[in-house]
Amino acid sequence: MSETASALRQSAERLSGGLPPLIVAAEHLANSVLPGAHGRRRAGPGADFWQFRPAGPGDVASRIDWRRSGRGDDLHIRESEWQAARAVTLWVDTGAAMGFSGAARRETKGARARLLALALALVLLRGGERVGLAEAGRAPRAGRSQAALISLALAEEADAGPERSAIDLRAAPAGGHVVLFSDFLGDLDAVQAALSQAAARNMRGILVQVLDPAEEDFPFDGRTRFESMSGHQSFETLRAGDLRAAYRDRLAARKDRLAALAGQAGWLATTLHTDRSPAEGLLWLYHALGGGGR
Rank of each mutant, 00 (worst) to 15 (best):
R86D: 11
R86F: 08
R86H: 11
A87F: 10
A87M: 10
V88T: 14
T89P: 04
T89M: 11
T89A: 09
T89V: 03
L90M: 12
L90S: 09
V92D: 02
V92S: 06
D93C: 11
T94W: 10
T94K: 13
T94H: 14
T94A: 15
G95R: 02
G95A: 09
A96W: 11
A96T: 14
M98Y: 07
M98L: 14
F100G: 04
F100Q: 06
F100N: 05
S101C: 09
A103N: 07
A104T: 15
R105Q: 15
K109M: 13
G110V: 00
G110L: 01
G110D: 00
G110A: 03
A111Q: 15
R112Y: 07
A113T: 08
L116K: 07
A117L: 01
A117R: 02
L118M: 06
A119R: 05
L120Q: 10
L120H: 09
A121G: 09
A121K: 08
L122P: 07
V123C: 14
L124P: 07
L124S: 06
L124E: 11
L125R: 07
R126C: 08
R126S: 08
R126N: 12
G127N: 02
G127F: 07
E129K: 07
E129P: 03
R130M: 08
G132M: 05
G132C: 09
A134V: 02
E135F: 11
A136G: 04
G137I: 04
G137S: 02
G137R: 01
R138G: 00
R138N: 09
R138L: 15
P140H: 06
P140R: 00
R141H: 14
A142Y: 05
G143E: 04
R144S: 11
R144N: 07
R144L: 15
R144I: 13
Q146Y: 06
Q146I: 03
A147V: 05
A148S: 13
L149I: 13
I150T: 00
I150C: 02
L152S: 10
L152K: 06
L154K: 05
L154Y: 04
A155K: 03
A155P: 03
E156Y: 00
E157F: 01
E157I: 10
E157L: 13
D159V: 13
D159N: 14
A160K: 05
G161L: 00
E163L: 14
R164N: 10
A166E: 14
A166H: 12
I167Y: 09
